[in-house]
Amino acid sequence: MPATVYLGGHLKSFSNGELETALDLDFSVLDDVLDALWKRHPALRDRVLDEQGEIRTHVNIFVGSEDVKRLNGLQTKVDPGTELHIFNAVSGG
């Protein structure tokens, strides 16, 4: 099943400059897709998730147009062909 992950520009130094990653695998939830993404770009994992495996406070992941922190987090259901976006939040100073 296909899924496409789009990365915010700040993350490209951890993905060899790649901002769009097409994945084709068996998945049912976000965690499955991210596991495949970490295999493609290992450095992304520690930047997107904290040591407890949670999405970092100031990182947002969208399945379609929905922020997964308002859904089921890493267990949010992902349908075939879904587009995912990983962005840094607008927080900062």
Partner: peptide, 18 residues
Amino acid sequence: DEPEERRIKMPKNTRKSL
């Protein structure tokens, strides 16, 4: 350098993050 896996990480069993 910026290692893919960070040098300093709180172990999982601490239930804390750096």
